[in-house]
Nucleic acid binder design. Structure first.
Length: 820
DNA sequence: GACCTGCTGCGGAGTG
């Protein structure tokens, strides 16, 4: 390669590389080189990394002294990424760029899998630029000379900021940034983000409360790629089930699409769904063996790396994956993207669509494969959302005391801190701008003595106050703290491996502890037989031809976003008036007519309540179309408010469209609603707290909080601590703290998190306010309707095994399928 | 005219 002649401007370098110099890159470079901070907003694959990395290099070149020996050493640039794999990938690209500029810039990577040797070498001398995860950055703050490490730092970049910001990992990053700004007030802070609804807020969170937001910039990449949404519609609507979320009935249509393209990504919503699809395709189309692969978070890293690599080399025709391929490693775009089932949010759908489309400027195309009939409405709603360029917000986390407690201990393990100064610094972080002295004092007490109800236990006295400085002196405390840093708390997972030693991935403890020798299950696309469980490893062997249980993971439950929900309500309301406007809705007509016949289709100004009686009891179905979390909260409140009128208990069930209250007693909703305002927002929080569920929910949330705050030690690496034990000790702590303390911030936080995340309080208030303006219509039906049936099935599914469920559904069909 | 659920991400250091 010809040596480059210096390239002291970005233009020169671009010319040398023969690259096109995009407007947004130019803008970002100019802003950075003029000393500003800001946020770059650009889609994946647009060269957003270089828009900052190159100007950083230019700045570095310009700062070099004439005599090489006089060169300033030590850390100058930090580049934070949410993924280990991403930092390795960036490392290669950046090193290459530095090389081509003929620069002797030392670049380092620091993450959990950085070798001990490399860590030691970094400790002796830091590289000039460091790629790091938020967690590893915190670990640097736990070192004795941390302010020394960061004193020459002039630039910090947070990559994929949209991804971090909405989580506690984002809060963790905010605290680091506040610290770095206090070490060096002239620090330049830059974020790189995909498009989200609240970009302005994203910049504020990044720059902090004292940051000079007015003087910073948001740089937007202009090229809005066109996205084409195409639904896979079966010939007859009957071929789509009323309920269900697997979508495998359309497997033939999907395979036809896959066959047409070179490479296809098939996104599903759950890990077991990828396993099911893989099995079904292999069974029906054996020719896919060897050119199809699976990708989800429970598969072994090596396996996933191989899949990504093979996708790169176009050795694979089809990869079935979950959100594990949403982020990160920038592989070459694939030809076709298919989304199976609701993506739940428009932003996620757009991001996945962006994985397709080869030529610059060419549109991206995404196929939507509905898994049940009603999802045809979602197809239309998604298309509309994409066309109108609607994007969801990522609200930042506020007042996370668990993360702050951990941070205080981290600093105490490191250089120690002076509390007044740290208080000011912490208030610079967006997430703690409202923290007051009382809360701060409570936290100081918590890290030094444990909370008031724990003062008798030495275990919780972690930090000491020595000559005005808060410090950790115990090596044991320091060691344990280092092991439990970070904000990600997951269930105990066991590794799965073959007898000859090849690792397949991991399953959750709850799934595998029910297994005995000889049991068969499906995992990593294979049918395997359980052999034994030892330490934290499950040994299996191949079980050809046998049928087995599917691995189930206890994962998160994404609700439908409120933006998408709004479109769905609108589309549904329009579907009767304009049945032929969209082909999806035209296909759905028979079902919609049946809904109208048996009950009604609510328009946007109406709330539908259906009441029906079956052998199971009296059902009340309510359809706010607000996503399952809001429905969970509403069902709790309604059940509580109804039980205040007369003693009555309900079992509840819900999906993204509505919820069900089932009881053995009849409630006349029409009469009840004349007497009480069931949907009132008055005393909303009180009513939630009055219900038993709120305490149970808070107790479950507390497990995560107590782990982050360092109340519960999760065990040494490789040592097996059962989730059950952790749950038990956290619920004991929760009980003690709730009982003996009025003002325990961590307990309060648990309730607050239930309100904010579990029940989506803000959204629920908005929904209730909307309902108050709506006309409520109660329909008595004598048969389940297309809207209510799926909710009934969802409830049964939780109670019954799958064979029994099948029987039950058959019975229901017989029972209700007589002519109207 | 009616089947299968539940995403992602991270992580010591000092001593012999």
């Amino acid at each position: 390669m010809a040596k480059s002649p210096g390239h002291s401007t970005v233009e020169q370098w671009f010319k040398y590389k023969n690259w096109k110099w995009a407007a947004f890159q130019k803008e970002a470079a100019a802003a950075y080189l003029s000393g500003k901070s800001g946020l770059v907003n650009a889609p994946t694959g647009s060269g957003k990394t270089y828009s900052l990395w190159l100007p950083i290099l230019i700045r570095y070149i310009n700062s070099l002294p004439d005599k090489p020996t006089k060169q300033k050493t030590g850390l100058q640039i930090i580049w934070i990424t949410p993924l280990r794999a991403l930092s390795k990938d960036l490392f290669r690209n950046m090193e290459m760029a530095a090389l081509e500029m003929n620069l002797k810039l030392r670049i380092g990577v620091r993450s959990g899998d950085t070798s001990v040797k490399e860590r030691a070498s970094q400790k002796r001398q830091m590289p000039e630029a460091l790629l790091i995860t938020p967690e590893s950055l915190h670990i640097l703050f736990a070192q004795k000379n941390s302010s020394e490490i960061f004193k020459n730092l002039h630039t910090v970049v947070v990559d994929e900021w949209h991804e971090l910001m909405g989580s506690k990992r984002g809060t963790q990053t905010e605290l680091s940034l506040a610290r770095l700004r206090s070490i060096n007030p002239s620090l330049q802070t830059w974020g790189i983000s995909a498009t989200i609804g609240n970009l302005d807020e994203a910049r504020k969170v990044l720059l902090g409360m004292k940051g000079n937001v007015e003087d910073s910039v948001i740089v937007k990449a202009k090229s809005q790629k066109k996205i084409i949404v195409e639904s896979i519609i079966p010939d007859r609507v009957e071929s789509l089930p009323w309920s269900g979320y697997m979508g495998t009935r359309l497997v033939d249509d999907v395979v036809n699409i896959v066959r047409k393209g070179k490479t296809t990504l098939l996104f599903t919503n759950t890990r077991s769904q990828t396993e099911i699809w893989y099995r079904i395709i292999i069974d029906k189309y054996p020719e896919f063996a060897g050119i199809m692969a699976l990708h989800h978070a429970s598969l072994d890293r090596e396996l996933r790396d191989w899949v990504e690599e093979s996708l790169h080399n176009e050795k694979l025709k089809l990869v079935i994956c979950t959100a594990s391929l949403d982020l990160g490693v920038d592989f070459r775009p694939v030809e076709t993207v298919i989304q199976v089932g609701s993506p739940k949010s428009i932003s996620r759908f757009v991001q996945r669509a962006g994985r397709s489309g080869h030529q610059p400027g060419a549109p991206s195309k995404i196929y939507f494969c509905p898994t049940n009939a009603l999802e045809l409405i979602e197809a239309v709603s998604l298309r509309e959302g994409v066309e109108k360029n609607i994007l969801e917000d990522r609200p930042p986390v506020i007042q996370a005391f668990d993360v702050l407690a951990q941070w205080m201990i981290t600093l105490a393990v490191g250089e120690g801190f002076e509390e007044k100064q740290l208080f000011e610094e912490v208030r610079d972080a967006y997430g703690y701008q409202f923290i007051n002295r009382d809360e701060w004092e409570w936290l100081l007490g918590y890290i030094t003595t444990g909370s008031p109800s724990l003062t008798v236990y030495d275990e919780y006295k972690k930090v000491e106050r020595i000559e005005g400085r808060y410090k950790v002196t115990s090596r044991r405390v320091a060691h344990r703290h280092m092991l439990s840093m970070g904000t990600i708390v997951s269930d105990t997972a066991l590794k799965v491996k073959f007898q000859h030693g090849k690792y397949l991935g991991s399953v959750e403890e709850s799934f595998v502890t029910r297994m005995k020798e000889g049991d068969v299950f499906v995992f990593a696309g294979m049918t395997v037989e359980f052999v034994r469980i030892h330490e934290m490893t499950v040994t299996v062997k191949k079980a050809e031809g046998k049928k087995g249980a599917l691995v189930r993971w206890a994962g998160g439950r994404m609700p439908l976003s409120s933006q998408l929900s709004a479109f769905i309500r609108e589309r549904l309301s329009d579907a009767i008036d304009n049945p032929l406007k969209e082909k999806e809705l035209a296909r759905l007509q028979p079902l919609l007519l049946l809904q109208q016949q048996r009950s009604m289709i609510p328009d946007q100004h109406e709330l539908l309540i259906e009441q029906t009686e079956t052998r199971e009891g009296h059902h009340i179905f309510i359809f706010p179309f607000e996503g399952r979390l809001v429905h969970e909260g509403m069902s709790i409140i309604l059940a509580y408010r109804l039980s205040k009128i007369k003693p009555i208990t309900f079992s509840v069930a819900m999906n993204d469209y509505g919820f069900e209250l089932l009881s053995d007693q009849y409630v006349d909703m029409e009469t009840v609603m004349k007497e009480v305002d069931l949907f009132s927002t008055l005393h909303l929080v009180d009513d939630i707290y009055q219900s038993v569920n709120a305490t149970e929910m808070a107790k479950r949330k507390f497990r995560e909080i107590s782990a982050i705050a360092g109340l519960m030690f999760q065990g040494y690496p490789g040592k097996f601590v059962k989730t059950k034990h952790l749950q038990a000790s956290s619920s004991l702590l929760f009980k003690v703290m709730s009982k003996y303390e009025d003002n325990n911030l961590l307990v309060k936080q648990a309730y607050q998190e239930v309100l904010t995340y579990q029940l989506e309080e803000v959204r629920m208030r908005e929904a209730l306010a909307r309902i108050e303006t709506q006309k409520i219509i109660v329909k008595k039906t004598n048969k389940p309707t297309p809207l209510s049936f799926p909710i009934m099935v969802d409830r049964l599914r939780e109670q019954l095994t799958s064979e029994k469920l099948e029987d039950r559904i058959q019975k229901m069909i017989k029972q209700y399928s007589d002519a109207d």
